[in-house]
Simulated assay, not measured.
Amino acid sequence: MWRTSGKSPMVGERASAFRRLRPVFVFSGQGSQWAGMGRALLERSTVFEMVLRACDVQVRRRLGWSLLDVVTAREAPLGDIEVSCPAIVSMEIALAALWRSWGVEPAAVVGHSIGEVAAAHVAGVLSLEDALHVICEQGRAMGRLRGRGAMAVVSQPWERMGEVTALSEGKLWPVIHASPEWTVLAGEPEALDGALEVLRERGVVARRVDSEVAAHCPQVNPLREELRARLAGVRPRPERVPLVSTVTGRDLAGPRLDADYWVRNLSEPVLLREGLDTLITEGHDTFLEISPHPLVKHWVESCLDAAERPGRVLVSMRRGREPGQELLETLRLLSRPSLDAVPALRP
């Protein structure tokens, strides 16, 4: 097994080769979490451990529980949105730090749903303290809606969702424009089950997401003012890395990611396809998903295919797989280095 040094893991010409790697970092949202997802990297990567411990300090101060215990436990309450939100974002922030310690710098960043909080931190827009404040407050707010909502992934274009939601009498909404072929629906559980039954009868692939809340829809509206007040102290900064918003679908200056923006991030639809299309139009063709398990990889590939642009979509971790192997295999795919050019690792 391996452990990275706390100092720069590469020196000289080997390091410079990796520093030329500049994929788009894509941060995913709910659904990528799994029990024990942080255990191996905490044991084997000094950089990952250092950053996750810094996140743990912020989570403990705000929520009173141990982030480190949650991401290493074989059984953890990751189904609770108050827990999963800060756990996922903290894992993503630590993974991004590990990639950057290896010289893999993002050409741009984009985030899907809560992943946008991690993206904003990596872009330099939010301090670590502000990023963890935003995600802890978002998770706390969503916890108040537990049991009232549900979500589902549907293999039908966003443009055709109107005929489905019209049957729900205002109880369902398209909430994530994921790709040309995929949309996420959210709303009241019974209305969603009825819509899924109709869709399946039509031959549409549709499956419930493991969620007891409906984000990015009008169910969040009663929480907007309180959440805005709780986030009033957030102080966004100019971005150091280009950031494409999935609230607007386009490039966005860092200072605009204020309290009101993070309320919109939680309550308005996720325009992931529009954000990815913006990046593809700008010429980006290599994307690296930063998450504990691939969640948006096939959506990014779908957007590349629709644009008729060749490209690659790589991942950081996979559920249940030894993360060191996955990370180094992805690094080789990014750079095709010889075996003696990989980051310095030690038992």
Rank of each mutant, 00 (worst) to 15 (best):
R3N: 10
R3D: 09
T4V: 08
T4S: 05
S5L: 03
S5M: 04
S5K: 03
G6L: 09
G6E: 07
G6W: 07
G6T: 06
K7R: 04
K7G: 02
S8L: 03
P9Q: 00
P9M: 01
M10V: 00
M10Y: 01
V11F: 01
V11Y: 01
V11D: 03
G12D: 04
G12Y: 02
G12M: 01
G12W: 01
E13A: 00
R14H: 03
R14C: 02
R14Q: 02
A15H: 00
A15F: 00
A15W: 00
A15N: 00
S16E: 06
S16P: 03
S16V: 06
A17F: 02
A17N: 02
A17Q: 03
A17G: 04
F18Q: 00
F18M: 01
R19G: 02
R19K: 05
R19T: 01
R19S: 03
R19N: 03
R19W: 02
R20M: 08
R20Q: 07
R20D: 06
R20V: 05
P23M: 05
P23H: 04
P23D: 06
V24F: 11
V24C: 11
V24I: 11
V24R: 08
F25H: 10
F25K: 08
F25D: 12
V26E: 08
V26Y: 06
F27E: 09
F27Q: 10
S28D: 08
S28A: 12
S28G: 09
S28V: 12
G29M: 14
G29N: 13
G29V: 13
Q30S: 06
Q30P: 05
Q30T: 05
Q30C: 04
G31C: 06
S32A: 09
S32C: 09
Q33H: 07
Q33V: 06
Q33D: 04
W34N: 06
W34C: 06
W34E: 07
W34A: 05
A35D: 08
A35I: 05
A35M: 08
A35S: 10
G36D: 09
G36V: 10
G36Y: 11
G36W: 09
M37S: 06
M37Y: 10
M37T: 10
G38A: 13
G38F: 07
G38C: 09
R39Q: 15
A40K: 13
A40T: 15
A40L: 15
A40P: 14
A40D: 15
L41M: 14
L41T: 11
L42R: 14
L42K: 13
E43N: 11
E43L: 12
E43M: 14
E43F: 10
E43Q: 12
R44A: 12
R44N: 11
R44E: 09
S45P: 08
S45V: 07
T46W: 10
T46M: 12
T46V: 07
T46R: 11
V47C: 13
V47W: 08
V47P: 10
V47F: 14
V47H: 14
F48R: 06
E49L: 14
E49F: 15
E49K: 11
M50K: 15
M50A: 14
M50R: 15
V51H: 14
V51N: 15
L52T: 11
L52M: 13
R53F: 12
R53W: 15
